[in-house]
């Protein structure tokens, strides 16, 4: 339950309310994590928050987090400046099935800040290009200025066997891309459902709609993974807050196969 001391090495603005922090360890701590895992980040005297790791899993000297300001605690996090310290516990949780997906096509479906926990998957697939088939990234955000990692999205799109599809809910007239919900992108993806593993992260309603649409399109529920979110205070299954039916999101998840959780998704106020 003791955070280790890490230092902010880089802060970059992704969108008006979202920042990426790169942290390096101060006391001989190490990076290293599985895509989809999260850390508990502690701001001295303020509080602790579960934040997904958004960097490259191959990078061992640092840990990268993309944080959206949604309240006082996240605001305190993104207000850290270079050289300031943060407490880090973790990494925790079950990550994305990057090993099970080996030899298959990978579909990444992200909504809003949900691209952050999926970026390590994209890095991993691109780092091990021969181990995977096609990579399709379907990404929806609220508006063009809310799209994360825009430069990288463009870079990824230029790579062989990578298809990047983006859409926004509303666009200004200068926006030349797609407008519409993220499920409207599936019509354009070039994938065979039987050999595809899908990894989905975004608001819960969006994931529900995506899961239904993808299973309708022939993807097996067991090949479809969602990353769930609930209140978390400890990250290790002690505090009880993240319980969701029989599951502790922190230690049983946050990533779950859809086949295991589909009935729970329809339970209101579970």
């Amino acid at each position: 339950m003791m955070p280790g001391p890490w230092q902010v090495r880089r802060v970059s603005k992704e969108t008006p309310d979202t920042f990426t922090l790169v942290l390096e360890p101060l006391n001989g701590g190490r990076g290293g994590f599985r895509p989809g895992q999260f850390s508990m980040l502690w701001v001295f005297g303020v509080g602790e928050l579960p934040i997904s790791i958004s960097g490259d899993p191959a990078e061992e000297k640092s840990l990268t987090y993309t944080v959206r300001s949604v309240g006082p605690a996240t605001q305190a996090l993104i207000s850290r400046s270079v050289g300031q310290e943060l407490g880090v516990r973790g990494p925790f949780g079950a990550g994305w099935p990057v090993d099970q997906a080996r030899g298959r096509d990978v579909l990444v479906v992200a909504g809003g800040i949900g691209l952050a926990p999926l970026r390590p998957v994209i890095y991993h697939v691109l780092d091990h290009r021969k181990d995977y088939g096609r990579l399709v990234i379907a990404y929806g955000a609220r508006s063009p200025r809310d799209l994360l990692y825009r430069k990288e999205l463009a870079q990824w799109a230029r790579q062989k066997d990578v298809q990047v599809l983006t859409t926004v809910d509303y666009g200004g007239v200068s926006w030349r891309g797609r407008v519409g919900v993220v499920t409207s992108l599936f019509r354009f993806m070039r994938l065979q459902p039987a050999r595809t593993t899908a990894m989905v992260c975004g608001p819960e309603i969006m994931m529900r709609l995506v899961a239904r649409e993808l299973t309708t399109r022939g993807l097996a529920a067991g090949d479809l993974y969602l990353s769930m979110e609930r209140n978390m205070k400890c990250g290790v299954g002690f505090c009880g807050h993240c319980q969701w039916g029989p599951h502790f999101i922190c230690k049983d998840g946050p990533v779950f196969p859809y086949s295991r959780i589909a009935p729970l998704l329809d339970r209101y106020e579970l």
Binding site: K233, C234, F238, C239
Partner: peptide, 10 residues
């Protein structure tokens, strides 16, 4: 019952 919350002071 084992549920807990965390509180920070400075």
């Amino acid at each position: 019952c084992f549920c807990t919350t965390m509180e920070d002071f400075s």
